[in-house]
């Protein structure tokens, strides 16, 4: 990434601008403010990113108060196959998602217009429109908010990690030794709390921009009502003969990437693994639930029809018997 700009030198200046609590943060654009009813989406223009990681540092800084403070030693968990996930001694890791790093910069060396180039772009939770992590959370800890944010409540999460299993990008990351499970049956159920980008819900509530958007020197990201963001993404894609990711993936997300090269190529070029999501084409994970929900509306009617049918058959039988007497 150093071919782009001096990251550290840049960081100092930009972080000062963000401010720890975001008091000095740039406000949300007026079109996004007061949009309580609608979903907000972000646009990430991959062409613009210089890989400086200012966004990564800003995310850490403003969200530090939400990070886990695990109690050690951790309670022994049974059975022994249950593994501790401890990132508390590796809080500085920035090259993947961790409970202490909700955003990282992914790199892909690809050919852009015949020339080899290393593209960099921020990766974090996509804030799906119908998020399986929240839908399938059995405990009500992960929820989708009306403004399009998917958030895991760290006071309620038990760290079972189901959200990571069902997330197509396996985004949420676990820290053992924190949260509600410690007060329940720490040896037998739960394993900490899951953490991920909450799209700075608290800053958005106050009308400020998410820190990563606010601090970016290249204005790589933009936030606004989803319809407008999608329109803009298409306009850019049209101008540059580019490609879009996140609009349709997993049934639609609130993070729309625009790239000058196809996402299949980026997907092939990025390093994938735990905490390092790929860019696969993702089908709607919750499609089965939508389809089966329709059958659920018909089911009781079918049951009632069967009972009524049986009743008429019995009545006919009785009147037939009476007529035959």
């Amino acid at each position: 990434m150093d071919h782009k700009i001096s990251r550290r030198g840049f960081l100092k200046g930009s972080l000062a601008a963000v401010g720890a609590a975001g008091a000095a943060a740039l406000p949300l654009p007026s079109v996004a403010r007061g949009e309580a009813q609608g979903e907000l989406a972000t646009l990430i223009d991959i062409r613009k990113c210089i890989g400086c990681e200012a966004c990564v540092e800003a995310c850490k800084e403003v969200n530090e108060h939400k990070f886990p403070r695990p109690k050690k030693p951790f309670p022994t968990m049974y059975p022994s196959r249950v593994k501790v996930s401890d990132w508390s001694d590796k809080q500085d890791v920035t090259d993947r998602l961790t409970p202490y790093n909700w955003l990282f910069i992914q790199e892909a060396t690809v050919k852009v217009k015949g020339e080899e180039e290393t593209l960099t772009f921020p990766r974090r939770c996509m804030h799906c429109q119908n998020p399986p992590c929240a839908d399938l959370c059995p405990w009500g800890a992960a929820r989708k908010l009306k403004n399009g944010i998917t958030r895991i409540d760290s006071d309620i999460c038990l760290g079972g990690s189901k959200c990571r299993a069902v997330c197509p990008w396996h985004i949420p990351q676990r820290q053992t030794g924190v949260g509600l499970y410690l007060d329940l049956l720490p040896s037998l159920a739960g394993n900490g709390v899951m953490y991920k980008c909450d799209r700075c819900y608290d800053r958005i509530e106050k009308g400020a921009l998410p820190a990563c958007i606010d601090v970016c020197p290249e204005k790589v990201q933009k936030i606004g009502p989803r319809a407008q963001i999608v329109r803009e993404a298409h306009e850019i894609a049209k101008q540059i003969n580019g490609y879009i990711y996140g609009e349709k993936e997993n049934g639609g997300t609130n993070t729309i990437y625009v790239s000058p090269v196809p996402f299949e190529e980026l997907n092939r070029a990025v390093e994938k693994g735990p905490g390092k999501p790929g860019l696969d084409p993702v089908k709607n994970s919750m499609a089965h639930a939508d389809n089966l929900a329709k059958a659920m509306v018909i089911a009781p009617v079918a049951g009632v029809a069967a009972a009524v049918g049986k009743f008429y058959k019995t009545m006919k039988g009785i009147s037939g018997e009476e007529a035959g007497k």
């Binding site: 399938l136 189901k162 299993a165 069902v166 994970s285 089965h288 639930a289 089966l292 929900a293 059958a295 659920m296 089911a299 009781p300 009617v301 079918a302 049951g303 009632v304 069967a306 009972a307 009524v308 049986k310 009743f311």
Partner: peptide, 26 residues
């Protein structure tokens, strides 16, 4: 497989609702 058990749970719920409709009206 959470998605598979979820699908089974939904299909079971469909049968349950049909049965509930039947038993209630019967």
């Amino acid at each position: 497989d959470f998605y598979l058990t979820h699908r089974i749970h939904y299909v079971g719920a469909i049968v349950l609702l049909a049965l509930a409709g039947y038993v209630a009206f019967d």
